[in-house]
Amino acid sequence: MLDPGETPAYLETLLLVLDLLGVFFFAVSGSLLAARRQFDLVGSLFLAFLAGLGGGVVRDLIINEDVPNAFANPLYLIPPALAAGLVYFRLVTQGRLRRTLLVFDAAGLALFCVTGTRTALAAGIEPIMAILLGMATGVVGGLLRDVVANEVPEIFNRHGLYAVPALFGAGLSSLLWTLDVFNWLTAALVMLAVFTFRLVSFRMGWMAPNAARNAGS
Results as ranks from 00 to 15, higher is better:
6 E>C: 07
58 V>S: 08
44 S>Y: 05
108 G>C: 11
119 T>Y: 08
134 G>A: 14
187 A>Y: 00
42 V>Y: 09
200 V>L: 09
205 G>N: 13
22 G>T: 05
151 E>Y: 10
41 L>W: 12
163 A>H: 03
60 D>V: 08
199 L>I: 14
10 Y>S: 12
63 I>F: 00
33 L>T: 14
160 G>Q: 06
114 V>K: 10
42 V>L: 14
198 R>P: 02
199 L>V: 05
158 R>V: 04
74 P>V: 02
150 N>R: 15
80 P>C: 11
75 L>S: 12
118 R>S: 11
35 A>D: 01
154 E>F: 04
79 P>H: 06
34 A>Y: 06
65 E>T: 07
171 G>A: 14
192 L>R: 05
93 T>I: 02
87 V>R: 02
99 R>P: 00
5 G>V: 04
139 V>Q: 10
35 A>M: 00
74 P>F: 07
215 A>D: 03
110 A>G: 08
44 S>W: 03
78 I>Y: 04
72 A>P: 06
76 Y>I: 03
93 T>P: 04
133 L>D: 04
118 R>N: 08
26 F>I: 03
114 V>R: 12
19 D>I: 05
116 G>H: 12
11 L>D: 00
217 S>Q: 04
167 L>Y: 09
161 L>R: 13
81 A>P: 03
123 A>S: 15
155 I>H: 00
10 Y>T: 10
166 A>D: 01
25 F>M: 14
168 F>R: 04
1 M>Y: 06
141 G>A: 07
14 L>R: 12
161 L>D: 00
88 Y>K: 09
138 G>R: 12
125 I>P: 09
66 D>M: 11
204 M>Q: 15
48 A>N: 10
192 L>A: 15
110 A>P: 02
158 R>N: 00
208 A>W: 05
113 C>L: 01
141 G>S: 10
146 D>L: 13
25 F>V: 03
92 V>W: 01
135 M>A: 14
139 V>M: 06
163 A>G: 06
182 F>N: 12
1 M>R: 05
26 F>P: 01
46 F>K: 08
12 E>Y: 10
62 I>K: 09
215 A>G: 04
82 L>R: 07
79 P>G: 11
213 R>C: 01
8 P>K: 13
84 A>Q: 10
4 P>T: 05
66 D>P: 07
199 L>A: 12
105 D>W: 08
131 I>V: 15
201 S>P: 09
46 F>E: 00
9 A>D: 02
36 R>I: 02
14 L>C: 08
180 D>F: 11
201 S>M: 05
95 G>Q: 13
166 A>M: 06
149 A>Q: 11
140 V>L: 06
101 L>E: 12
93 T>N: 01
158 R>T: 03
191 M>T: 00
215 A>V: 02
186 T>L: 06
206 W>D: 01
97 L>D: 01
193 A>F: 03
30 G>T: 01
206 W>M: 08
116 G>V: 09
65 E>C: 10
68 P>A: 06
94 Q>M: 13
81 A>I: 13
202 F>C: 06
189 L>I: 09
117 T>G: 12
215 A>Y: 02
67 V>I: 09
49 F>M: 15
191 M>S: 12
205 G>S: 12
214 N>F: 05
215 A>Q: 14
55 G>R: 14
120 A>Q: 07
23 V>L: 15
39 F>W: 15
30 G>S: 11
180 D>N: 14
160 G>R: 11
57 V>H: 11
1 M>N: 08
127 P>N: 07
93 T>D: 04
121 L>P: 13
44 S>Q: 11
10 Y>P: 01
55 G>T: 07
72 A>Y: 07
